[in-house]
Design a protein around this nucleic acid. Structure first.
Length: 250
DNA sequence: AAGTCATCCAACCGCCCCGGC
DNA sequence: TGCCGGGGCGGTTGGATGACT
């Protein structure tokens, strides 16, 4: 029957934090450090959910946070990292000292999206808006449905009754065909570098080891630390502009 | 001055992943 | 090996504030 709630919501405060709550949280973490967030509220004398405490600390109270406007350099770095990583805000935040994932996410949605649109760039794909319809593979779900009907749902999809209603009957003007386009960087990134005569896949070029998405088998075969000297030089990963190994979680 | 709309951002929600048992 | 709980993440919401009419 689902998960148990992370806290007893009936006896917790919600909404904006008061100065007193902030002070309590700061004092507790200074004294005891970050630890078990679930038990922290009670120990600190806060009527808050542990998750709420964690969020407040990480996004607002942490002493190493950099407040204030984003610089032009930060803007450009966020754009580049988003092009590489997508909506992996925590990874992006890991490259911007003093910035939080929430802050970057908000900043992206309020400023950078508009900035890119003004430049004529699709913020989702990082491609020119007028190219949006090019290099797109269309997957017709009506076709899939027909195939599933023929083959008895071979992909194991769970089909709700209402989904069996043809879309055109319910909303004739709505085209729900999904489209998949190749990642933007595929068209611009240089030739993949080789290590020991072998070509690295994109996953390995990012320094991600043992990934199930690895297609070259190097990443999963413990390449004895050689991965940091090979791969794409996207964002200057190899030239030292960025240390992509520190893209790991905060 | 008052009402309405747009924007910003802190906070919440629900899901997923991972480690411990 | 499977289950459970805690932590973390991305998406979304809603209140506060400013801009505009």
């Amino acid at each position: 029957m689902g998960r148990s709630p992370c806290c007893e919501k009936a006896h917790t405060n919600k909404g904006a934090w008061t100065k007193e709550e902030d002070d309590r949280l700061i004092a507790y973490i200074r004294a005891h450090g970050e630890g078990c967030w679930r038990s922290l509220p009670k120990a600190a004398g806060l009527l808050r959910c542990g998750k709420s405490c964690r969020l407040r600390w990480i996004n607002y109270l942490r002493p190493d946070l950099k407040r204030g406007n984003f610089t032009e350099e930060e803007d450009e770095l966020i754009i580049k990292l988003h092009g590489l990583l997508g909506n992996k805000w925590s990874l992006i935040a890991g490259r911007l000292p003093g910035r939080t994932d929430n802050e970057i996410k908000n900043y992206w949605n309020t400023h950078i999206r508009r900035k890119l649109l003004n430049r004529g760039i699709d913020p989702a794909t990082h491609r020119p808006l007028n190219e949006a319809s090019q290099d797109v593979t269309t997957i017709s779900f009506s076709g899939v449905k027909e195939e599933k009907d023929k083959l008895g749902n071979p992909n194991g999809f769970i089909i709700k009754e209402e989904e069996k209603i043809p879309v055109q009957e319910r909303c004739p003007d709505l085209n729900l065909d999904l489209r998949i386009s190749p990642p933007h960087h595929q068209t611009t990134q240089p030739e993949p570098l080789k290590t020991g005569g072998r070509i690295l896949c994109f996953i390995c070029s990012l320094g991600i080891k043992n990934s199930k998405d690895c297609t070259c088998s190097i990443g999963s075969s413990s390449s004895s630390g050689s991965s940091n000297s090979s791969g794409y030089d996207f964002l200057g990963l190899n030239s030292g502009l960025l240390d992509y190994r520190s893209l790991e979680m905060k």
